[in-house]
Design a protein around this nucleic acid. Structure first.
Lengths: 282, 282
DNA sequence: AGCGGGCGATACCCGGCGGGTATCGATCCG
DNA sequence: CGGATCGATACCCGCCGGGTATCGCCCGCT
């Protein structure tokens, strides 16, 4: 099976429409139809149920969609990491670290400084991603290593080392009635009529329904808190980047947050191993 | 990047010889040379250092070897799993479970029976593999789920659930001087001049040096014990398949063994989820 | 030093396949 | 019932992946 065929199939399976898929791929519709038929013949499996009015995935088709996406990510990763390894020989970045924008604001600079001080450390590029994008970036090779936060991020399929565990605090505008309390309970947090909790994107990029604002990363979030539009429970290390008119109130019964360093399991390069070692020693 | 190019590159990188690699691939040498050059030009990276006497990998080349193997495994997995999903629609096996030959002899039949009794369970094919082959089988799609044994097997990059934890026992011929002891210590086990411990294959399939016999799976192992050629420390559940002239002596200070059920993280099908759920309930 | 052999690169040719356009046939809608 | 939509089919072309022949280089043998 060639990656071209996989790309074609994934496009059709996502669009469920040969014409649109062909346009997206930049080819005409007939070669696309033919390619899918050839793929089906070679696999000996019908992947798509098509009548001239609609296209639907078979059970085998959804298997190939899932597995094919993973395979294409792996191929993309091979491409990108090889290119970067080539550039690195001429002074480019050696490692790409991804973290949620606005998270781990205390840990990250310490880690980067400590690693830079190590003997034969390589340049580390920092990539700030939206919530929930990190796993994809690691899998398709745009990043080599990530800082993730349990229990929010999924670490399935990744190797990890735990770094720090923190209590959480609620971040509020200083003018809010609850701002003076010594501590809060989750029950207090969950239904504030005046300050609805923000909504994070789900795994597929869409947002759940609800009253709160849609949020992509922590920087947006803090700005919305400053504007008095929302309130949010965050790990206590976020204190260092609160704006002057915000306060943080401990929430002892909120789940603790563990920051972990994570990387794809097979890609244990020398530079990555050194970075992980540095991180666990902090 | 096409899988054909990846296969070609991996062949050359493994052989470090264009002629041999071409023979292995079933093509002539010149097209292979040309394909590698094209790949290098498209990536903008030199992958192989070649003079007319020897071929060597560059740093970027070894990155592509590692990542390319993973990508090819993922493509193979997509192919195989799709084919099987197609067959399953016509009554073929729905899941392939792999375990080390001779291990988990008590747990496995219980698991298979319990799962078969579940509503809408699918046919489970059991694949018995040699030591250390399971991870590969899961990654390239020849298996969907594995029974692994910590701390011996690596579970990096896999999702797992713990099933049972056991003490270990030493398996000896009944005639051996130590066979009558109530228990043994690891120190007793490690240097028995008359019964050298067996040697397991390393990750790359080769064996370490040493006096003991080379062993591929547990069936071989027990036969060698019965013949008085070796002795071995195994989880106590192996008692159920001891031959009459063998005894098992507890070794309390040997590491405990945890049996886990493991599967590739992205492939959480309905049938797989049901099997995992059944396993954790046993 | 000279020569032969091994090995990758180059030159050149052919056939198949991936891409295109034109058109058909089925199905749904007004 | 006619037109629109959409996938399938028919057919053609050019490129690229495959082949053979040969070159050029370097090493080792005598």
């Amino acid at each position: 099976m060639e990656t071209r065929e996989l790309r074609y199939f994934v496009a059709v399976a996502e669009e469920l429409h040969f014409g649109r898929a062909a346009r997206r791929l930049g080819i005409a519709q007939p070669p696309l139809s033919r390619a899918i038929r050839q793929l089906e013949r070679r696999l000996g499996v019908t992947l798509l149920e098509r009548d001239s009015r609609r296209v639907a995935l078979t059970a085998a088709g959804s298997v190939l969609l899932r597995e094919g996406r993973a395979a294409l990510d792996a191929v993309d990763a091979a491409d990108r990491r090889t290119r970067r390894a080539g550039e690195a020989a001429h002074g480019g970045a050696g490692l790409v670290l991804v973290t949620k924008a606005g998270a781990s604001s205390e840990l990250l600079p310490k880690l980067l400084d400590a690693y830079a001080a190590e003997p034969d450390s390589v340049r580390v590029e920092v990539l700030l991603s939206g919530i929930g994008e990190q796993e994809r970036l690691l899998r398709d090779g745009r990043a080599d290593v990530a800082l993730l936060h349990l229990p929010f991020d999924s670490i399935t399929g990744l190797d990890t080392e735990e770094l720090v565990t923190e209590q959480q605090v609620m971040v509020l505008p200083a003018t809010h009635p609850l701002a003076g309390r010594a501590q809060l309970r989750m029950a207090d947090v969950e239904a504030l009529p005046d300050l609805p909790l923000p909504r994070w994107p789900l795994h597929d990029g869409t947002y759940p329904d609800g009253p709160g604002p849609e949020v992509r990363d922590h920087s947006q979030l803090l700005q919305l808190v400053a504007l008095g539009r929302t309130a949010v429970v965050l790990p206590e290390s976020c204190r260092s980047l609160l704006w002057p008119d915000m306060v943080a109130v401990p929430v002892p019964d909120a789940p603790t947050v563990t920051t972990v360093i994570a990387w794809p399991p097979h890609s244990r390069s020398r530079a990555l191993a050194a970075l992980v070692r540095t991180a666990t020693r902090l």
